[in-house]
Computed example of a mutant assay.
Amino acid sequence: MAEARVGLRTADDSKSSWAVKGAGTPSFEAKYRVRGSDVTPDLTLRFDSVARFLQDVATDDLAASSFGSTDPYWIVRRTIIDVLEPIAWPGAVSLERWCSGLSTRWANMRVRIVEMPEINAFNPAPRRPGVIETESFWINVNVSGFPARISDEGFRHLSVGAPEERLRWQSMNSGAPAEQPSVDALQEREHVIRATDFDPFGHVNNSAYWAVVEDELTEHPDIRTGPHRAVIEYLKPVTPDSRIMLRRRRVSDRLSLWLLVNDTVVATVVVTKG
Rank of each mutant, 00 (worst) to 15 (best):
A51L: 06
R249F: 04
D38M: 10
G130M: 04
G175C: 04
V141H: 09
A162H: 05
A51I: 02
S27G: 07
A148T: 14
D71P: 12
L260R: 15
K21D: 01
N173C: 15
E233N: 15
I244R: 05
I232P: 13
R78H: 12
R194H: 07
G68S: 09
Y32T: 05
A211R: 15
D71L: 11
R250Y: 00
V34S: 00
V20G: 03
G36A: 14
R224G: 02
V266F: 06
D215S: 10
V83T: 11
D222S: 08
P240N: 09
W169V: 11
P163R: 07
V270E: 13
S66Y: 01
Y209H: 11
Q180S: 09
N120I: 09
R9W: 06
S252E: 04
L235V: 13
V238T: 12
D82E: 10
Y209R: 01
F53I: 04
V111R: 03
S256Q: 12
W106Y: 15
T218A: 14
V266Q: 05
D241W: 01
A208T: 05
S256G: 01
E133M: 04
P181M: 00
S69Q: 15
P41C: 11
I113S: 00
R189V: 08
S66Q: 05
R52L: 10
I75P: 13
V76H: 09
T44V: 03
P129N: 02
G154I: 14
P227R: 07
D48E: 13
A30N: 02
A185L: 04
N173F: 10
A107G: 07
N142S: 14
V270Y: 01
E96C: 01
V6K: 09
A125G: 06
S174N: 07
A2L: 06
S136T: 11
A11P: 11
